[in-house]
Amino acid sequence: MAEVSLTTEVLQYVTNGVAKGSTYALMAVGYTLVYGVLQLINFAHAEVYMLGSYFAWYQAKWAGYLPDSKGARAETVPLYMVALFVAGAMAACALAGMLIERLAYRPLRNAGRLAPLITAIGVSLLLQYGGQVVFGTEPKLFPTFAETVVYDAGGVKIPNTNIYIVVTSLVLMLGLTFFVNKTRPGAAMRACSHDMRTARLMGVNVNATISLTFAIGSALAAVAGVLVAMDQPAITPLMGVRIGLKAFVAAVVGGIGSIPGAALGGLLLGVSESVVSGLWKPVYSEAVAFVFLIVVLLVKPSGILGKSVREKV
């Protein structure tokens, strides 16, 4: 094997990290949207992500792209089919997200902040254990992209899956930013996050807007679920736990309530984890997210791009 210079090595980790960070960012947006509107840490979000990859898995199964019985590597899937699976998973997860809000959070909208937090934990546990009952505890192999091509950019290896991940995330994030800032439902979302009571007085349908918020966040989580599953081809009912926590941290680091903040936090986390794990010890990469978190919280509690709210006396 040829000697690789340190710069190339670091660049390699950075590019890998960008792909990883994009999926964090997609997840983080879901946390940030819901927190922005309801001030609720939606613990169930990580499980919606898990559901997304299972929905896609079942679609692949029905379409006949399953790994053979010997557990060998799954058949490859053409790109247009992948797009179809992603769309299906997005729709199903959007529905699941709205359902979760309707059943577990809306009845507690006026019950203070803690009770919905506990039901969020309850939903999260329900989906984890329910997933183990319905899907089984053993990891399921996920089919991969049609042709895995690894591009070589001056020694830095970039697989095409990473490019798909980054491009998809980028397009979705830009679309979301446009939606929130330039459309009427987007304006309703911003109004609700600013002041829900006043928004209601101004004729905003608060319940519909909150449902929409959950639908969008959940659909993005579904995309993240499918992208990650394609990249590391086994999925389990507990796959959301770790990435969920990290994505939430990313949202806080970037400034909770802010969409660009979520993207920035996700990328920052993904890149630094990848670099630390490559140059140092993989164990420590797990701690990176939380070290970031503590530092940001102590220096600027509202996050890098968050607005600081002054307490009125």
């Binding site: 507690l108 009770a115 329910g130 183990q132 009952v133 505890t137």
Partner: peptide, 23 residues
């Protein structure tokens, strides 16, 4: 005869208890 059912019911009960008695 369903493995893991107890935890599913536990999670469900947790949600139901919180919805009906938030305090």
């Amino acid at each position: 005869g369903i493995d893991g059912l107890s935890m599913v019911v536990y999670a469900l009960l947790l949600i139901v208890m919180m919805v009906f008695r938030p305090q």
